[in-house]
């Protein structure tokens, strides 16, 4: 199972959302990349849904 492979690896994290979670990991010398995320289509739900449909094609 992939989980058991994970247990043998060094943890490398991508963090999306609360920046403090990335700060905490960084302070423990864990490799972490914080995503400068923002809502798709400026938070316009209709536009976001249209975009995701286009991507799926």
């Amino acid at each position: 199972m992939k989980v058991n492979e994970l247990f043998k690896q060094e943890l490398k994290v991508i963090n999306m959302g609360l920046r403090s979670f990335a700060t905490d990991l960084k302070s423990q010398n864990v490799e972490v990349v914080h995503v400068d995320w923002r809502p798709v289509a400026g938070g316009n739900k209709k536009m976001a849904s249209l975009l995701s449909k286009l991507k799926g094609k």
Binding site: K12, V13, I14, E31
Partner: peptide, 28 residues
Amino acid sequence: DAGDDYNPPTLDSAIKYMPDSNMVVISL
């Protein structure tokens, strides 16, 4: 404080930036 040199704008670009990442923490 988060100390990152580079903050990719999307998950896709973050995965490309750190292809051997194994955990994604999401608090969006």
